[in-house]
Simulated assay, not measured.
Amino acid sequence: MEQGTLYLVPCHLGEDARDNTINPEVRIVCNKLDGFLAENPKSCRAFLKSINLEKPLQSFDYYDLNKRTSDIERSEYISLLKSGKNLGIISEAGCPGIADPGADMVRIAQQNNIKVVPLVGPSSILLALIATGIGGQQFTFHGYLPVDEKELKGKLDQCIAAAQQGVTQIVMETPYRNLKLFKALCNNLPNNFQLGVASNLTQKTEWIKTQKVSAWSKQPEPSIHKVPTIFVFGV
């Protein structure tokens, strides 16, 4: 029996995304799938509805894939793939597998010799990197930084040391804690560092700005409270 394929399906970065941010191939592939592994099945269905699939949404199987998904459930998903089912992983926003529960599923699929196919789509991390202009030759994405202030200070010290060696640093935060992280960056990064803030990427309200930390410190805080935002900094 031929095994199925695991597709990594990108979705919009927000509800107000500009037109044509999703590659037409995504719609073609989704029409051929048997089901989806989704961080949130409800938002998964909403995305599938937005791209106007030919197949009715109720014809697909939907499975939970989030931080609460057990190893037993992941093994069951692998069994489905081995039985010939073609499945897609859909994240809450953007491309699955980066700072996302889908990463573990992809690792297990690779360990079981399941074919994995990534589809082209929007990634807030890469879009922020190229749009802030701080440098893409060498970079590190740290995901979410520690919430504890002492641990955060220690992590930022490590990031600063790497940035001084020419490695651009990329971090993110839960949207309601954006301003707290922004203040921490302004208070801890050297004044001559470049700090880029990229919010609501691909949305009609997209906002991207890069300037020295010293300049940020003299201006009102950016309007990034509860707004999906990526922070990029370096020399």
Rank of each mutant, 00 (worst) to 15 (best):
S217F: 06
S59E: 15
L126A: 08
F193W: 09
S75W: 03
N31P: 10
S214G: 10
C159V: 02
V106S: 02
N40H: 00
E206C: 07
D64G: 04
P190C: 12
P96K: 02
M172Y: 02
T168M: 11
D148H: 07
V171W: 10
P41N: 02
N187P: 07
G121C: 03
S83C: 00
Q194M: 06
T140Q: 12
L145C: 12
E2S: 15
V213T: 07
S217T: 08
G135S: 13
P41R: 10
N112R: 13
L81N: 05
N40E: 01
D71G: 12
A93Y: 01
C186F: 01
L145I: 11
I51A: 08
L87H: 06
E39N: 02
A184W: 07
N52Q: 00
A215H: 04
S217I: 03
W207Q: 15
E151G: 10
T21I: 14
N86D: 12
I125H: 01
T205I: 12
K226L: 06
I134P: 10
N200E: 06
N192P: 07
P220W: 05
L48I: 03
L181I: 00
D19V: 15
Q203N: 09
R18Q: 08
T205N: 14
L129C: 12
Q158Y: 04
K49V: 13
F47H: 00
G88P: 05
Y7D: 12
S83D: 13
R18H: 06
D64R: 06
C11N: 15
Q3V: 03
Y7H: 00
L48S: 05
L37G: 00
N112M: 13
T140D: 06
L6S: 02
G196F: 11
G143M: 13
E173G: 11
L57A: 08
H142R: 12
K55N: 10
C30Q: 09
I89M: 02
K153G: 03
I98R: 03
S214L: 08
Y77K: 05
N52H: 03
R45Q: 15
R45H: 09
P190Y: 12
L181N: 08
K209M: 11
L37D: 07
W207A: 15
T210M: 12
